[in-house]
Computed example of a mutant assay.
Amino acid sequence: MGRHLDRAKAYVGRDVSGLLEGGRYSLVHTRSLEFDDLRPYVPGDDVRDIDWKATARSGNVLIKRFVSEKHHKILVVADAGRNTAGLSPSGEVKREVAANVIGALGLITLPRSDEIGMVFGDGRGCVDIRLRRGETHLEYMLQRYLDHACDHPGRSDVVTQLRWVAEHYRHRHLVVVVSDEPEVDDRLDELLTRLAARHDVMWAMTVDHPAIAGPDDPMDADVVGYDVADGATVLGRTDLGRDVIAAYEEAERARREALYESMTAHAVPYALIAGSRGIRRGLIGMTGVLARAG
């Protein structure tokens, strides 16, 4: 296994087999009736698929698995622009957290022989890596993503990547967006409406370190920082004063509330990932929401 996948494996764990299971989670809604094998029941499965005879013999609830349920088509849509150079609350660079999220998704596909591809880039355009299987393909995807994010990336604008997917991916996929928390505007609303009508969409949001350190934050409150998007100076808590800080915190609260309402309105499960150690919990939360949605 390559070094990028090895790094992601430390955060997603060894047992990833159940993270894409579940009747609703099958991306092929007109399921083939060709029986393949049995597997343990997972919350969210259709109870009509329980094999009662096998369940009685084994003492565990078992589900019939069909060929079309077994293989998914997963498309990662990732921001690789300047915003990925920022810090996450864990202290990691956000592109490293994002790469570990993408690697974790890839690791989930391996035992299932799912196909996975990726569209990434910045405001200037997109790189489209077509769906394939296997460790070599996953390692290639991760290396291409990190090369782009590290080598003079352009302005972040994940809407550019979402628009590419809306215009070029006609067949149903599981679309997993990996970016920071997007700005809610008419462009995003229009694209989420289009994408959610055709695909199953989830959003893994890599969280920014707060622009203003909290009073209990170990970072020095007097430190002057900068915005990775445009290089603008970000003053410390002491320089800004109480009124400015209160206004900032209120604006942040309103921004996040609007974002969460938008995701809920479009039925897009999302997770806030503040660092690599939260990846497995975030993926389980998102897949659980999507499974229950059916």
Rank of each mutant, 00 (worst) to 15 (best):
H137I: 05
E69H: 07
G91T: 05
D49A: 13
A98L: 12
G44C: 06
K70E: 03
D49V: 11
L138W: 01
S58D: 10
H72C: 12
V159M: 14
R82S: 01
G91P: 04
V127A: 15
A80V: 02
Y145S: 05
I116G: 05
V158W: 07
L146N: 04
D157M: 09
V165W: 09
P111A: 03
L62Q: 03
L75A: 14
D46G: 10
S68P: 04
G81H: 09
K73V: 06
I108P: 02
V42I: 10
I102E: 05
P111C: 00
L105E: 01
S156L: 09
D51W: 13
H137L: 07
V165H: 00
R172M: 04
I108T: 07
V61P: 00
R95G: 06
S58P: 05
V97A: 10
L162G: 00
M141W: 05
R124C: 06
H173R: 13
T55V: 12
G81L: 04
R155C: 00
E69L: 01
V119F: 11
Y145L: 10
V42Y: 08
V77S: 12
S90Q: 07
S113Q: 14
Y145Q: 10
V47L: 14
K73I: 09
L62C: 02
K70N: 05
I108N: 00
D45S: 10
K70P: 02
H148M: 09
W52K: 15
V97M: 02
A99C: 07
M118S: 06
K64N: 12
A85V: 00
L75N: 01
E167K: 13
G86T: 11
I108H: 02
R48G: 10
G121R: 13
G121H: 01
R95F: 12
E139T: 09
L162P: 03
Q161K: 06
L107E: 02
G154E: 02
L62I: 09
W164G: 03
F120H: 11
V159F: 04
H152C: 03
V77L: 07
E135M: 07
L62R: 08
A80P: 05
P153C: 14
C150A: 14
F120A: 14
L87V: 11
K53W: 01
A98C: 07
V93I: 08
G106T: 08
P43Q: 01
R112S: 03
P43I: 06
R95Y: 15
D114I: 06
L146V: 13
D157V: 10
R57P: 04
W52V: 15
L105D: 12
V61N: 02
V42H: 11
Q161D: 00
G44Y: 00
A85K: 13
S58R: 13
E69I: 07
